[in-house]
Computed example of a mutant assay.
Amino acid sequence: MKIRKENISARVSCALKKIVVDSDFSHREAYELGAKIIASGDAKETLSQVEKNPTSQRTIKEAECKLVEERKHQLEEELKRL
């Protein structure tokens, strides 16, 4: 198995990071959970279940929208200060 030396967290979407922050899991626990799912060989099935589940998709979209709204407010405040 070839090990890549890249930063995995840089490739994780902001919405998923926000979901982890808002959950009871730490980032480390979330990565360990993901690694365990991959190691058990269930990653493809789990990923397809998450992608097909409308509730999980809605949760991810809500987190994305919340991040966009927060960024929008930050930019509006910066614009007012200028």
Rank of each mutant, 00 (worst) to 15 (best):
M1T: 00
K2S: 06
K2L: 14
I3P: 03
K5V: 10
K5D: 13
K5Q: 10
K5E: 14
K5T: 05
E6M: 09
E6A: 04
N7A: 07
N7G: 02
N7K: 02
I8T: 03
S9H: 00
R11D: 14
R11L: 15
V12K: 01
V12L: 12
V12Q: 01
S13T: 06
C14P: 14
C14E: 12
A15V: 08
A15D: 11
A15E: 15
L16T: 00
L16K: 00
K17V: 09
K18L: 05
K18N: 03
K18Y: 12
K18R: 10
K18V: 05
I19S: 01
I19M: 14
V20L: 02
V20M: 03
V20W: 05
V20I: 14
V21T: 01
V21N: 00
V21M: 06
D22G: 03
D22Q: 07
D22H: 02
D22V: 10
S23Q: 02
S23K: 02
D24N: 07
F25Y: 11
F25K: 04
F25Q: 02
S26G: 10
H27K: 03
H27Y: 10
H27M: 14
H27W: 12
H27E: 14
H27Q: 11
R28I: 08
R28Q: 12
R28S: 10
R28M: 07
E29L: 11
A30P: 05
A30E: 03
E32H: 00
L33V: 09
G34K: 02
G34M: 13
G34Y: 08
A35M: 14
A35V: 07
K36E: 15
K36M: 15
K36Y: 12
K36P: 06
K36W: 12
K36L: 15
I38W: 04
I38P: 01
A39I: 04
A39P: 02
A39L: 13
S40F: 11
S40L: 13
S40V: 04
G41R: 00
A43K: 01
K44L: 15
K44E: 15
K44H: 11
E45I: 07
E45A: 09
T46Y: 09
T46S: 06
S48W: 13
S48V: 04
S48M: 12
S48Q: 15
Q49M: 15
Q49P: 02
V50D: 09
V50P: 01
E51N: 06
K52H: 11
N53W: 03
N53V: 01
T55V: 11
T55G: 01
T55E: 12
S56H: 09
Q57C: 10
Q57V: 07
R58W: 14
R58D: 06
T59W: 12
T59G: 08
T59H: 08
T59I: 15
T59P: 05
T59Y: 12
K61W: 11
E62R: 05
A63Q: 03
E64D: 13
E64F: 10
C65E: 11
C65Q: 04
K66T: 06
K66A: 10
K66P: 01
L67E: 02
L67V: 04
V68M: 04
V68Y: 03
R71S: 06
K72D: 13
H73I: 14
E76L: 15
E77R: 00
E77G: 01
E78W: 06
E78Q: 03
L79F: 13
L79K: 05
R81H: 08
R81F: 10
R81M: 14
L82Y: 07
L82I: 10
